[in-house]
Amino acid sequence: MTGVRESDPTGLHRVLDDRVVLPQAAQRLDTRHALWSDEVRIRVERLNLDAASFRQLERTHTRADGTVDRDALRAEVLGIVASRGKMQNPETGSGGMLVGTVEEVGASSPLGLAVGDRVATLVSLTLTPLVIQDGLAAWDAATEQVPCDGYAVLFGRSIAAVLPDDLAPELSLAVMDVCGAPALTARVVSRYAGATVAVIGGAGKSGSLSLAAARDAGAARVIGVVPHEQEAARLRASGLADEVVLADARDPIALRDAVAAAGGPADVTVVCVDVPGCEGGAILSTAAGGTVIFFSMATSFSAAALGAEGLAADVTMLVGNGYVPGHAEHALHLLRGHDGVRRLFEERL
């Protein structure tokens, strides 16, 4: 492309801010249709908004009578994408990911994709140039999966996985949206001999995969924590947890006591809930020398750090960054290998 800045594999060339920041931190991205030589353009079929972002949008547009103004929610998503050139919720800072079909590949793209490949992007929508062209007319704004028509651009350092032939695209998207959680859970659990693992939000997407990953990685005991009996019944039926306990993860004492009664404290605590205020309970539920993995974009990392210090808690705290080598393949393997995981995913879809 002549007359424009040189491309950078991080996508720096599409940042429109006055100061030098990476695309995730940018206020606005360049969404031009034409590609730099190391880029790939995707014809978008479906977005998957991350759970924390979608729940925040629902809360914002809940009327006094408790119903959600779905039209206003849809309009806000359209407004965010139009103004920022990407999907990044200004309140949560998070986005999601997408599925679509490769429509053009730059001559020097290192991603190994070909025109016609149906792919899931494994990088956040918060750093992906995105244009929506159908006004989200097919989205009822009732779930985080958003059918749409438009295009997105991947950079030289982006990641994408070709969709498997044996799974519905909606199911693949749901799994790949959270595939970093089980991969990191497995890595951490494998470092403990006979670990007790507690997964907060165990009936959700990342939670169910993390329970299965912990079991496969050698955990001696897995505890699933859920907020109400409906989810508890679903999780019990899945067979993924040795113990299923009810607790409000925002109540640190209730959470600590529930995990303790189920065989805790945990050597590894995995936080997969999409509401704020769960940091203290996760720390209290974890044994000295244990590890807390935060996978929720609703997490306040300052609250986690200062809370652990204030509790004199000798725990390692990890931020799940969504990427571990081989994470997509691992998550799909868990889905195929654990009937309980697949059942929970399909019930949500």
Rank of each mutant, 00 (worst) to 15 (best):
A212R: 04
A213T: 05
A214V: 09
A214N: 05
D216E: 15
A217P: 04
G218F: 06
V225K: 02
V226Q: 05
V226H: 12
H228Y: 09
Q230L: 14
Q230V: 14
A233L: 13
R236L: 12
R236C: 08
R236P: 04
A237N: 10
S238Q: 09
G239F: 15
G239E: 12
G239D: 13
A241P: 08
A241T: 09
D242T: 10
A247N: 08
D248Y: 13
P252D: 14
L255S: 08
D257P: 06
A258P: 12
V259D: 04
V259S: 11
V268Q: 02
V268K: 02
T269R: 00
T269E: 00
T269M: 00
V273F: 02
G277T: 09
E279A: 15
G280I: 12
G281L: 12
A282G: 06
L284F: 07
L284Y: 07
S285E: 02
G289D: 03
T291D: 01
F294K: 00
F294A: 01
F295V: 03
S296K: 01
A298W: 01
T299G: 00
T299S: 00
S302M: 07
A304P: 01
A305D: 05
A308M: 07
L311D: 06
A312M: 04
A312R: 03
A312W: 06
L318V: 08
G320T: 02
Y323E: 08
V324D: 03
G326V: 14
H327R: 08
H327Q: 13
H330F: 15
A331Q: 12
L332W: 13
L332H: 06
H333L: 12
L335T: 12
L335H: 07
R336L: 08
R336T: 06
G337R: 11
V341F: 11
R343F: 10
R343Q: 12
L344K: 13
F345Y: 14
